[in-house]
Structures are given as C-alpha cells and as structure tokens.
C-alpha cells in the first residue's frame, strides 16, 4: 500500500487543528496535555511525509525522519514533567481543572 504524501500532510493538518482546538476548549489539564501531544504528533507525521517527498530512489533525505525520532523523545519527556506537575498541582487543589488555576490578569 502506498499512501501519497499529500494525504499524510492533510491528515497531519487535521490532527494539528484538533490539537489546537482541544487545547483551547477543554478545561481538564490532562486532556490539555494530550492535545499538546496531538500537535507534536502532527509535526511528526509532517516530518515523515516530507522526508519521503524529498527522497528519490537514489538519494534518501532522512533529516525529517531523524527529527521525528527526537520529537518522540522530547514529547515523552514533556509528558513526564507535565504529569509530575499535574500531580503536584492536584495535591494542593484536589482538582485538575484549568479553572482552579486562578486566572491572571
């Protein structure tokens, strides 16, 4: 099966839009972090699709594929730090809603 890169790019765009939408609409901190993961994965998909687009049968352009691996790693670390802070936050507030975060000016 050979999916054309254009379709992958469109899928990535949709994923990114869902991520931004989720970030803006949802109030649950964990869902917000999930939305961020979604955005990072949209970037990953674009990287991979673009990497294939720019490769020919002779020359492979693997920059994008390598970047995607790094992004996966960064996303894992961000999730770890983010969830640790959510726990610290939950201990104080007994809630993981953005509304209890106290809106600044």
């Amino acid at each position: 099966m050979n999916i054309p890169p254009q379709q992958l790019l469109i899928l990535a765009g949709i994923l990114f839009a869902i991520g931004v939408g989720g970030f803006v609409i949802r109030r649950n901190l964990i869902v917000v972090l999930m939305s961020i993961e979604l955005m990072l994965n949209a970037a990953n998909l674009t990287f991979i699709a673009a990497s294939r687009m720019h490769s020919t049968s002779e020359v492979q352009n693997l920059d994008g594929a390598v970047f995607a691996i790094f992004v996966i790693c960064v996303a894992a670390v961000e999730a770890a730090v983010g969830l640790a802070l959510v726990i610290a936050f939950f201990r104080r507030h007994q809630s993981i809603s953005l509304d209890s975060l106290g809106a600044g000016e």
Binding site: L9, A12, F16, G19, V20, F23, L33, I36, M39, L40, A42, A43, N44, T46, F47, A49, A50, S51, M53, D63, G64, F67, V71, V74, E78, G82
Partner: peptide, 16 residues
C-alpha cells in the same frame, strides 16, 4: 507545551 507544539509544526512545514 503549546508553543513547542506550534513551533515544531512550523519547523516540519518549513522542512517540507
């Protein structure tokens, strides 16, 4: 996290 996600998507487009 939001800005990292946005920036990474921008970089991926720039690479594309």
């Amino acid at each position: 996290g939001l800005s990292a996600g946005v920036m990474l998507y921008g970089i991926s487009l720039l690479y594309g």
